[in-house]
């Protein structure tokens, strides 16, 4: 496979999966986002900050229309970004991943990356709907979240290197090592400073849907990348054979 084809395959698979992920969110997380924002509206009405007038509703609906419209576009950009990282790691690790077909290999890698750069950080810093989060701490929270993703991801990479170096009967030590490493990091990293004051059924429901949707995204990205990779790699090998 040529380099430009490699880039195209990675971007196409990430973007496609991201757009599908954006549409999935209309069903999964959007109802919770609407409920949470309506709670914010009610709080504003009660405090006298806003009045529930037709003008307010018209402005609010236009604002939400812009935000909801952005879900699919932002999903595509999210897919391009996350898919690019996935594609780079897949290119470097493909030969050592278990599985006969590239889709199998991509699914294995997606599972590992989902765990390292999504689920473990998510367990420490779970997604929150609007109404949760003090705007004054957003930069601090962003640094915490990104730092933990980097710690977990780079830690997984380091232990993968170790996994490749050690003998076959000791490979389990790499998994144990990563578990200890990330367990310590999990405890050492500071807590989210903001208290959750929103109804817990709303927050829990949102978090469940958020995690489910991201998980589906990783599966879709892996299936598309693996399928495209397999197709173009096979074509490239055939061309080489034919001279």
């Amino acid at each position: 496979m040529k380099a430009y084809l490699f880039v195209l395959v990675v971007l196409l698979s990430g973007f496609s999966a991201g757009v599908v992920y954006g549409f999935i969110n209309f069903v999964t997380t959007e109802p919770f986002l609407d409920s949470a924002i309506e709670l914010e509206n009610r709080a504003d009405f009660q405090s006298g900050k806003e009045k529930d007038t037709p003008e307010f509703r018209a402005e609010y609906n236009a604002y939400r229309y812009w935000q909801k419209g952005g879900m699919v576009l932002a999903g595509g950009i999210f897919g391009l970004a996350t898919g690019s990282l996935f594609g780079i790691v897949f290119a470097y690790s493909r030969k050592s991943l278990p599985g006969k077909h590239d889709v199998q290999k991509a699914l294995v890698l997606a599972g590992l990356m989902w765990l390292a750069v999504f689920m473990i950080p998510f367990l420490k810093y779970p997604a929150n709907p609007p109404t949760v989060g003090d705007p004054n701490t957003v930069v601090y929270r962003a640094i915490l979240y990104l730092s933990f993703i980097a710690i977990s991801g780079l830690g997984a990479l380091a232990f993968y290197k170790l996994y490749k170096k050690i003998s076959k009967n000791k490979k389990v030590l790499a998994f144990v090592g990563y578990a200890i490493f990330i367990g310590i990091a999990f405890v050492m990293m500071p807590q989210n400073p903001d208290k959750v004051l929103a109804p817990m059924d709303l927050v829990s429901g949102f978090r469940t849907m958020s995690a489910t949707s991201v998980t589906i995204y990783w599966i879709i990205n892996a299936v598309i990348l693996g399928a495209l990779w397999h197709r173009f790699q096979a074509r490239h090998e055939l061309q080489k054979e034919l001279g």
Binding site: L33, G70, A74, A127, N128
Partner: peptide, 15 residues
Amino acid sequence: ELTHDMRHAAGFPCH
């Protein structure tokens, strides 16, 4: 604002 809903959905701190 354009990425607002996705930020929340994907787990990024938003506001």
